[in-house]
Design a protein around this nucleic acid. Structure first.
Lengths: 139, 139
DNA sequence: CAGAATCCACGCTGATACTG
DNA sequence: CAGTATCAGCGTGGATTCTG
């Protein structure tokens, strides 16, 4: 799954920025084309692998698996597999993953404010965002 | 300065995610190793090019210029150059750039909460974050 | 059903050298 | 002082094929 080499200058700088800048830290966790979308869908509750694939048709299996693995390694999601035939795997957000909700909400709010004239964001709008009473209070 | 080709599948998907997902939209604006750091320093007020370079020693000139140009193209910073010798160029945040403050604050807060045991983030902590009375209220 | 493995193209980043 | 130009390396994402 495309291992990351630990050497090389670019990784050095990545790690440096990662350690120095909390914003970069967040980017590393939820960056990439698909991670926000995956997280978004998991915010509404646990999902099976096939459900995620169905909900995000454009994503390739490799990308879905890869990002899910990264999210799992980052302790943002929990993978539960039942050793049955056919396989049954569900993905659930951890507490840290749930705590991302206000972060993503804040980002989404800014994005929509800045780009409201363009009427973009067919995928997610603030209205689509999963409701949570604690979501705004905790910010 | 490394033009982006408008074709290719990867850019297609990038644009798709960009249009569909506001979180990705934000990432595109403030993503990259250095942009958050640059923005962070500009949050404290306008800076000259040489000041930025001095404050962020690890960055190469190319990366600094490149990211500043992108930030300018994204209407996050304003570049003001005085046609004198020696050149005098200052960079200032736009309103949209200033509006990123609560976004970055929220992200930083999450990052620090998740990683507090590691005592990371020598560069920025919540204490270092520029104070602003409107910052928390608007969120 | 839920992956794993391989191959390859693209663009980002960095190093170095040069300029008005 | 404030940039530009060029070159090369690396990692990421995509397409395809295969498996328990």
């Amino acid at each position: 799954m495309t291992q990351i080499k630990e050497s090389s200058t670019i990784q050095e700088n990545k790690i440096t920025a990662f350690n120095e800048c909390p914003v970069t830290y967040v980017m590393e966790k939820i960056g990439g084309y698909w991670k926000p979308i995956i997280l978004y869908h998991l915010l509404t509750g646990s999902k099976r692998y096939s459900e995620l694939k169905k909900t995000i048709p454009a994503i390739t299996e490799k990308m879905l698996i890869q990002h899910l693995k990264q999210l799992e390694a980052d302790d943002l999601v929990i993978r539960e597999s039942r050793p049955v035939v056919p396989p049954h795997v569900t993905y659930t957000l951890t507490k840290a993953g749930m705590a991302l909700k206000p972060v993503m909400y804040t980002m989404a709010k800014w994005a929509i404010e800045q780009a409201d004239t363009n009427a973009k964001f067919t995928y997610k709008s603030l209205d689509d965002f999963p409701e949570s009473p604690t979501m705004l209070e905790e910010v």
